[in-house]
Design a protein around this nucleic acid. Structure first.
Lengths: 132, 132
DNA sequence: GTGAAAGATGGATTCATTCTAAATACAAAC
DNA sequence: GTTTGTATTTAGAATGAATCCATCTTTCAC
């Protein structure tokens, strides 16, 4: 995949699951899908692999609200929306208005290097079924 | 404080701690400050109170990255910056460019009702000491 | 006052994650 | 090709945050 990436068989199988899943799986989801695919890794190995891949920059860790961290193999800059009803997570590619990060730097004095956006609301399905 | 707010002595003491703390305390911080102030509440009571106050809309719960939730008594619309080195959290009052939430709605089909922004970077102090 | 409902308490429990110590694999040095 | 060392995996124990539970207390309506 990338140079300097030490992909053991376990790490590769974890990477494969994450990159083939469109729904931002949690560590537990990854475990389960590995098991379904006939692999059996220790819990610690899944966590270690997810961290390794995150540090290596080939996947991203998403933390949105409470609950388990989720993982995403899409690397393009993007943000996320979470459904407050069913928990579904989707990508947002609409880019943040330029200048906002700089405005934050000016206001706070922080050296901002990254801005995470998490939108919350109802996904199309839940919005439809809640419209009574 | 507000109408329809059932402030028991315990809830009031939790509210007082949160509103007098500028550093976005965690539940454990609140516990400790209560103890220092001479109150002793059960852990569950602190959590219940924080949730009650959050639901009542008089404080906000902040979840940024891993670790414990933090609480904030400032109610004006605002966002947060976290220092990736020391964990300090500050407020951002610079408002999000209008139209961004709507752009998200258009792109994703979600009925977006709220957008959380968490900026990450180095706080002024850490930035200074890391400049070698 | 009596009883129902809401709230508080301490301890046990759950869930996500990390740690630990032992077992394996793998690569470089001889 | 055996030895030595370093990185990785493993199972299970341990941790930290938060919630649950069963019991006791308070509050309020009547």
């Amino acid at each position: 995949m990338y140079r300097n990436l030490h992909l053991t068989p376990q790490r590769k199988s974890v990477y494969d699951i994450v990159s083939q899943s469109a729904d931002h799986p949690t560590a537990a989801d990854v475990m389960e899908r590995l098991r379904q695919a006939g692999h059996k890794l220790a819990y610690a190995t899944v966590y270690n692999s997810l961290r390794y891949l995150t540090d290596a920059g080939v996947i991203q860790e998403l933390r949105m609200g409470s609950g388990a961290a989720r993982y995403d193999a899409r690397l393009e800059a993007h943000q996320h929306v979470v459904c407050t009803q069913c928990g579904r997570v989707d990508e947002i590619f609409e880019i943040m208005p330029a200048g906002y990060a700089e405005a934050i730097t000016n206001e706070t004095g922080y050296r901002v290097d990254h801005v995470d956006v998490v939108a919350k609301g109802l996904c199309p399905d839940c919005a439809k079924s809640s419209r009574h």
